[in-house]
Design a protein around this nucleic acid. Sequence first.
DNA 1: TAGATATATGCATATATGGTTATATGCATA
DNA 2: TATGCATATAACCATATATGCATATATCTA
Lengths: 119, 119
Amino acid sequence: MKNSELSDEALEMIASRFGLLASPSRLRILNSLGDQEFSVGEIVVRTDTNQATVSKHLSTLFNAGILSRRKEGLTVYYRVSDQTIFNICDIVCDRLRDQLETRQMAFTNLVTKPKRSRK
Amino acid sequence: MKNSELSDEALEMIASRFGLLASPSRLRILNSLGDQEFSVGEIVVRTDTNQATVSKHLSTLFNAGILSRRKEGLTVYYRVSDQTIFNICDIVCDRLRDQLETRQMAFTNLVTKPKRSRK
DNA sequence: TAGATATATGCATATATGGTTATATGCATA
DNA sequence: TATGCATATAACCATATATGCATATATCTA
């Protein structure tokens, strides 16, 4: 990415893929799935989210190829089929942790240092 | 992520981080920066995007800690300070390539196989 | 076939976001 | 101080998106 020229179309695809992850609700669903399989109803309970909302998000993620789906009678089971999602999330989480830590330290220095340097 | 319970606040932070990347314009800016440093004006030209738009995106990315900024007289130079962005994008790009390839092959089989199996 | 259940979808609405124009700000220089 | 230039910000509009309610669809069972 750093070195390549990306077409508008490619940029749109990449952006919309990130758009899928840019939603707390969808992340909550993905997080609640982990690498297990759950039915829509179970996911509704686990995420404490409206059924219609869950169903729509699941469809969206399925259509994007991030989830796989299996029907059994009335119930539909979903599972994360794209493991790279978790890799990406982990990178972001680590990075956020770093940032927060850095800020935390900067803040600490900000409120403690002046006193000391002034004595 | 796969195994951890994430708080609502954490989910929001992660989501908003992805939200930053969920925009073709911002991706275009990041892509045009690579690991070099450019002024706002240069980025405007390189991305062929409205000055105000570019400036806003740059501020957004800077505030999120993805870009660093250096002022020299009238001009402001930006540079990507968070390299993990490129890692993430690369993962997504690879994954998209895979998906497209798979779909391409599925389509090819779809239009060629029936004829053969039917003869 | 009627009813019950699980999931999906249509519709309406609230909210967020991106982009543009116009203008403000900050710095350099005549 | 007045002017010009690079960048940032404000105000506005258009569009997209998430959500929830009501309802449709599909499947199972009595």
